[in-house]
């Protein structure tokens, strides 16, 4: 899909307010009004999980309540979520096996050099965000987003492009998050008798190891999604 095609398609798109659209508009307006009424009459003292989450914080191994919810209380949920990211990649590769790699080496060497310098720096930033996530706002998802961003820059500046398929190390990165999560879950099942039930003393170590693997997986997933499609060599088209 060329950019010009998208522009043309969107510009020539018929956005007139036809009768069916007026009907849809009326329905969605009614829905917005109903939801707004519900929001305005929302009771103040609803049963929240917040007191439970905040009171259990000393036993969770971390001080940041969001990280505690993600990696400790609702670890099972996050395990499945990391698996969803892997499934998205599998889906993209299955749907579009012949995606053109349309990135070109830029004319100026400045961009490529800059991006090369940026990568190690951003890995440090991501690691710092991960470490910070235990006690302050931050964590695997924020660090993963930073890594994903630098991965996108890498591909966009054509510093690194997949030729045919993806190298083994990249596949390893993509699966690392799920693998670490599952290994931790099964291991803890035998150690503590509960799936993803951490012993309080080792909780922080377990959380950081899982988060570290998940961070690299999230970053790799975002960058690989940006490439879009399973790359093939030019002559194979």
């Amino acid at each position: 899909m060329q950019t010009s095609d998208i522009d043309r398609a969107l510009q020539t798109d018929d956005t007139r307010l036809t009768r069916p659209r007026l009907f849809v508009l009326a329905l969605t307006t009614a829905l917005i009004a109903a939801l707004a009424t519900a929001a305005l009459t929302f009771p103040d003292n609803v049963g929240r999980l917040a007191p439970l989450a905040l009171d259990s914080l000393p036993r969770s191994g971390v001080l940041n309540p969001v990280t505690a919810v993600l990696l400790n209380y609702r670890g099972y949920d996050t395990l499945l979520e990391v698996a969803v990211l892997l499934l998205a990649i599998v889906g993209v590769w299955a749907i579009a096996p012949t995606a053109r790699v349309w990135f070109k080496t830029p004319d100026t060497p400045v961009l490529a050099t800059f991006v090369r310098l940026l990568l190690p720096l951003m890995i440090v930033v991501a690691g710092y965000m991960l470490w910070l996530g235990a006690d302050e706002p931050g964590g695997a998802f924020q660090g993963g987003a930073v890594l994903g961003g630098v991965g996108v820059l890498w591909v966009a500046a054509a510093v690194w492009l997949p030729r045919r398929g993806h190298p083994f190390w990249l596949r390893l990165l993509l699966g690392a998050g799920v693998a670490a999560f599952v290994i931790a879950a099964v291991g803890l099942l035998f150690l503590t008798g509960g799936l993803l039930q951490y012993p309080p003393e080792q909780a922080k170590t377990v959380i950081l190891v899982i988060e570290g693997a998940a961070m690299f997986s999230i970053g790799a997933t975002l960058a690989v999604l940006f490439i879009g499609g399973y790359p093939r060599r030019e002559e194979e088209k």
Binding site: L49, V66, A68, L70, R74, E81, A88, A145, I218
Partner: peptide
């Protein structure tokens, strides 16, 4: 309340991946 916040942070990443899949 940290519980809705945790839902949002996972939701953002899943939304990006779902968008990638939808675009493909």
């Amino acid at each position: 309340d940290p519980v809705p916040h945790a839902l949002v942070i996972t939701g953002i990443v899943v939304a990006v991946c779902a968008t990638g899949l939808a675009l493909t």
